[in-house]
Design a protein around this nucleic acid. Structure first.
Length: 480
DNA sequence: ATGTGC
C-alpha cells in the first residue's frame, strides 16, 4: 500500500491530513530511508494514529520507524488532557523498555586483557534469556508491590546501587501514580522472579569503548572521554510489563466501544485520558515502568560487582557512576508550549526517546547547560550513540527523538541470512565478545538486521532534534 | 518485546 507523502526538506516528510485523520503525519527520514519506508506498513500506522481523538500536533515518525502493534515503533503522539486518549499500543508491550549508560574511569587498554573474563562474569551475574531468573532473588508479592510503587528507589534502599544514581534516571526512577491494585495477579506472578533479568530479543548488556567524541563540552559534562570504557544496559519490564499491556488491551477494546471511539485498526484501542479506564491504564503502566527502572537498577549493581571482581579495583578507583537512564516505551504527562499556549499533554513515546533541551528543569542539574542525555543503541557489531536533547526537539517533537537503529530484516529473514555463519566467531575476530543464552537470538540480532544507526542519528542531528555527543563501539555483549 | 505460534 502506497501512502501519500510530501517532502518538506532534506529530512522531513508530511503525510497530509485526509479522510479520518485529524492532523498531518510528520516523518523524519532521508530520501533513501523514505524510499525504504514506502514499502513498509509503518507509514500507514502514522496515518492511523492521526485519527485518534484529541491528538495535538502531528503524528510523528522518527527515522528508525518500523511496523509495530497498532502504533509504529519510532512514533510520538501527544494528546490533550480533556479531549485526548491513552492507548497501550502507543506505549508498547515492553513498558518502559529503556537504556542506561554507566561510565568508568578505565581506559580500554586496561580492560582488554580481562575482557573475556569480564564478559563471563557479567553473563554469570546478570540472568539473560527467555524465562531467566536469579535463584537468590525471588520477591514476595508484598515486596513486589513496593517495587511497583517506589521503582529504582526501592532497589537503592535495599542496597542495590547508590542514592546519587536516582538523580540520573528519568523521573528519578519513580513514575508517580502507580497503583498495584490495578495490576492482575497473573502480572504479579510473572514479575515476581523476573526482576533483575535482561530478557531476550534486542535486549543486551554491553561493555563499550568511547570511540569518538562529537561535542567536547557535552562529553565533559557527562563524564565521557575518548578511549574510555563504558557500560550500556538495554532492557525493560519483562513478563510483568507484557502482562499489564495484554490485560489492558482487553480493557481498552471495550472502552473504545463504550466511548464511541472509531478505530481504523483495533490495535489502536484506547480510552479517554479523563475516563476511569484511561486513568487505570496509566496507574498500571506506572507500575510496569517502575518495575523496569528497578530491573535496570539491580543489573547496575551486579555490573559494578562484576567489574570490581574481575579488575580487582574498588568503587573509588572505577568511578562507575550512572550517566543517565532513559525510557523509550512510555506515556507521560508533560507540559509543552503548543501554538503559543502552555498545555498539559500525555506524550506517547513508543520506540522514541525523550530529548529535553538545555535549561529544562527536568534535566539533571549536572547536565542542565548541555541538555538531557539521550542513549541510542545501534547493533552489536557497529556502534551506539550518546546524544543530548535540543530546543529543536522541544519545539517540534514534544521533546523527543529516535531510540535506535530500527530493523531492516525481520527476525525470520535475519535468521535465514545468518545460516552457515558462526556469528560469535566472526564478531570475536573483530574484537567483540558475545555471551548469549540462545544462538537463535544472536542470529536474529546480526548487525545486518539493523539500519546503520549512524544514518539514523545523522538525520536526527540534521533535523535539529538531537545533538551527537559520542559514538560507542561494543567490546563485549551479553544477550538473551 | 513475550513462560515467542489459536
Amino acid at each position: 500500500m502506497s501512502v501519500k507523502v510530501e517532502q518538506i526538506d532534506a529530512c522531513r516528510w508530511r503525510l497530509p491530513r485526509e479522510g479520518a485523520m485529524r492532523t498531518d503525519g510528520l516523518v523524519f527520514a532521508s530520501r533513501q530511508m523514505m524510499a525504504f519506508l514506502q514499502q513498509e506498513q509503518a507509514l500507514e500506522q502514522v496515518r492511523n494514529v492521526a485519527t485518534l481523538p484529541g491528538i495535538v500536533g502531528p503524528s510523528i515518525g522518527m527515522p528508525d520507524i518500523h511496523w509495530g502493534y497498532g502504533f509504529p515503533i519510532g512514533g510520538v503522539a501527544a494528546f490533550d488532557a480533556d479531549e485526548g486518549v491513552v492507548s497501550p499500543g502507543g506505549v508498547g508491550y515492553d513498558i518502559n523498555c529503556g537504556v542506561r549508560l554507566l561510565r568508568t574511569d578505565l581506559e580500554v587498554s586496561e580492560v582488554r586483557p580481562h575482557l573475556k573474563q569480564l564478559a563471563d562474569a557479567l553473563y554469570r551475574n546478570v540472568p539473560s534469556g527467555v524465562g531467566s531468573h536469579r535463584k537468590d532473588l525471588k520477591l514476595s508479592v508484598e515486596q513486589e508491590r513496593k517495587v511497583l510503587v517506589r521503582g529504582a528507589r526501592w532497589a537503592v534502599e535495599q542496597g542495590f546501587g547508590r542514592p546519587e544514581d536516582l538523580e540520573h534516571i528519568e523521573e528519578q526512577g519513580t513514575i508517580a501514580g502507580a497503583d498495584p491494585e490495578l495490576v492482575s495477579d497473573r502480572a504479579l506472578e510473572r514479575g515476581r522472579n523476573q526482576l533483575g533479568t535482561l530478557g531476550s530479543g534486542n535486549h543486551f548488556l554491553e561493555v563499550d569503548l568511547v570511540e569518538e567524541i562529537g561535542d567536547e563540552q557535552a562529553a565533559a559534562a557527562l563524564g565521557l572521554f575518548s578511549g574510555q570504557v563504558v557500560v550500556t544496559i538495554h532492557t525493560g519490564s519483562r513478563g510483568f510489563g507484557y502482562q499489564v499491556c495484554d490485560d489492558y488491551l482487553r480493557t481498552m477494546l471495550h472502552a473504545a466501544r463504550k466511548y464511541g471511539i472509531e478505530l481504523p485498526d483495533r490495535q489502536l484501542c484506547c480510552a479517554p485520558l479523563s475516563s476511569p479506564e484511561g486513568k487505570q491504564y496509566l496507574a498500571a503502566m506506572a507500575c510496569a515502568a517502575n518495575f523496569a527502572f528497578t530491573n535496570r537498577q539491580l543489573i547496575t549493581a551486579w555490573v559494578r560487582e562484576s567489574f570490581e571482581q574481575v579488575l580487582g579495583k574498588g568503587p573509588a578507583e572505577l568511578r562507575m557512576s550512572l550517566i543517565y537512564d532513559v525510557c523509550h516505551n512510555i506515556a507521560k504527562w508533560e507540559t509543552h508550549q503548543f501554538e503559543g499556549k502552555k498545555r498539559r499533554l500525555c506524550v506517547h513515546r513508543k520506540g522514541a526517546t525523550r530529548a529535553f533541551p538545555p535549561g529544562h528543569p527536568d534535566t539533571p542539574a549536572a547536565y542542565r547547560h548541555v541538555g538531557q542525555p539521550v542513549l541510542i543503541p545501534g547493533d552489536m557489531g557497529r556502534y551506539s550513540y550518546v546524544l543530548v536533547g535540543t530546543q529543536g526537539a522541544f519545539e517540534e517533537t514534544f521533546g523527543s527523538t529516535c531510540h535506535g537503529a530500527g530493523r531492516v530484516l525481520s527476525r525470520h529473514a535475519a535468521k535465514k541470512q545468518a545460516r552457515g555463519h558462526n556469528v560469535e566467531a566472526e564478531l570475536a575476530a573483530q574484537g567483540i565478545h558475545i555471551r548469549a543464552a540462545s544462538r537463535a537470538t544472536v542470529a536474529e540480532e546480526i548487525p545486518e538486521a539493523y539500519k546503520d544507526v549512524m544514518e539514523v542519528v545523522g538525520v536526527v542531528q540534521q533535523a535539529g532534534i538531537g545533538k551527537i555527543v559520542a559514538r560507542l563501539k561494543p567490546l563485549a555483549v551479553i544477550k538473551g
